[in-house]
Design a protein around this nucleic acid. Structure first.
Lengths: 113, 113
DNA sequence: GAGATATGTTTATTTCAATCAACATGTCTA
DNA sequence: TAGACATGTTGATTGAAATAAACATATCTC
């Protein structure tokens, strides 16, 4: 993450914690499967050093490396639930509280690009 | 992700899909809250360009930027469940199937650094 | 004890991710 | 119609992310 962004320099505590937990979970899953770093890293398509970073919860590592790890461990399916609009209670409430005509929309209902 | 890793060059379809979905979900959550890119980006601590990348599901963007977005939207709590060892059914089975003495452990039960 | 394997650490090198400025487009409101 | 705002896009800059080699340490097996 060159030309460093503020969040990379000092992430919020909650984010740091989430990363450490995620890294530890990935490590646990690897050990349970009796996979060496080198081997799992190769399956993911990264170097063993990056996998070490992931297990340590390094913030600036590309998200594709993290998701690749989950994928290689067969744990990627859990991603679908993350930030699922159907589960975003607060967002739903906010949306419902507004009248039909709102926001700076593009065309109609939007969500496309 | 300079000196490009293989997974960054051509991520597995499942990973690409997960990223696109995640980005779309973040976008939906932002729109529901009536936040402009510029404003949410500032709260996260990134530039509006990176937030645009995130909503597009760019693979090589640092994970801290993605998690920062979830954090700023109040959706970070869902992260705890991701790759939770308690939910890793396959891993649990593999572990249980092994005899007490196993893997290349460090000291004793391990999981520490 | 010897050999094999796994991981941590350091150093050096290279490449592209993140930023910013500037301009274009599109939408909403007065 | 004009003005404000949100977003897309392009080009230039720069610094950190990912890699690899080499060595040290620790654990397991024979």
């Amino acid at each position: 993450m060159p030309r460093t962004s503020k969040i990379a320099e000092s992430p919020p505590h909650a984010v740091e914690q989430a990363l450490i937990t995620l890294g530890r979970n990935i490590r646990t899953a690897r050990l349970r499967r009796k996979l060496a770093r080198r081997e799992l890293a190769e399956r993911i398509g990264i170097s063993r050093y990056v996998l070490a970073d992931i297990e340590r919860g390094k913030p600036t590592t590309g998200i594709v490396a993290y998701l690749g790890a989950l994928w290689a461990l067969g744990l990627l399916s859990q991603m679908d639930e993350l930030a699922d609009p159907d589960r975003d209670l607060e967002g739903k409430i906010l949306e419902a509280a507004r009248s039909p005509k709102t926001a700076p929309k593009r065309k109609a209902f939007d969500d496309d690009f």
